[in-house]
C-alpha cells in the first residue's frame, strides 16, 4: 500500500472512531503516526498539534498537517478528505432519519437526554482548555475578562482575542 493508501486507511477509520470529536482520537492518531507508521517524530507531532491549535478553524487541521508532512500538498488533501468524508456521510444519513422521526415521542426523550449530556461535555471542555491555557495569573485574568465580555456585551470577541495577543506579545502574560 502506497503512502496515500496508508493515509486514507488510517484517517478514514479514525473518522468513524471520533465519537465526541477530534480530542477522542488524538491519542490513537499519535500512536499510529509516531510509533506504528513512523510518519513523524514525537516532537514533530507536538509542533504540528500546536500549529493546528493556534490557527483559526476546526481543530481537525492536525490531520491536514500530518498528511502534508507525509507526502506534501497531495497528502494534505487526501488525509483531510479521508478524515471528513466518512463522518459527513454518516451525519447526512442520521439527520435524514432524525428529521423523518421529528414527531415521535421517543425522539423528544433522546434529544432532551443528549442535550443534557452535551452541556456537561461542553462545560468540561471549557474547564480543560482554561486549565491548559491559564499558566499564570495574568492569563487567568484574561480568561475571566473575556468570559465576562462575551456574556454581558455584544462586542465581537475578536477584540478580546486581539487585545490578549498584544498583551502576550508585549510579554505581560
Amino acid at each position: 500500500m502506497g503512502a496515500y493508501g496508508q493515509l486514507i486507511a488510517h484517517f478514514a477509520v479514525l473518522s468513524l472512531l471520533a465519537v465526541g470529536g477530534v480530542p477522542t482520537v488524538i491519542p490513537e492518531m499519535h500512536r499510529h503516526a509516531v510509533d506504528v507508521a513512523g510518519w513523524l517524530s514525537d516532537t514533530e507531532f507536538t509542533n504540528l498539534f500546536a500549529i493546528a491549535q493556534g490557527a483559526p478553524g476546526p481543530n481537525m487541521t492536525i490531520v491536514t498537517l500530518i498528511g502534508w508532512h507525509v507526502t506534501g500538498l497531495g497528502g494534505a488533501l487526501v488525509a483531510t478528505a479521508a478524515f471528513c468524508v466518512p463522518c459527513c456521510v454518516l451525519t447526512y444519513f442520521v439527520f435524514q432519519l432524525w428529521n423523518r422521526w421529528r414527531d415521535r415521542p421517543w425522539r423528544v426523550a433522546v434529544q432532551a437526554g443528549l442535550s443534557a449530556v452535551t452541556i456537561g461535555i461542553v462545560a468540561a471542555g471549557a474547564l480543560v482548555i482554561a486549565i491548559a491555557a491559564d499558566t499564570n495569573l495574568a492569563r487567568f485574568a484574561i480568561t475571566l475578562a473575556t468570559a465576562a465580555l462575551a456574556w454581558w456585551t455584544r462586542l465581537n470577541p475578536l477584540w478580546a482575542l486581539g487585545a490578549a495577543g498584544v498583551i502576550g506579545a508585549l510579554g505581560f502574560a
Partner: peptide
C-alpha cells in the same frame, strides 16, 4: 498563549 487564555474565556461564556 495569551490568545488561548482569551479563547478559554470565550468558551466559558
Amino acid at each position: 498563549g495569551a490568545i488561548a487564555a482569551a479563547a478559554a474565556g470565550l468558551m466559558i461564556a
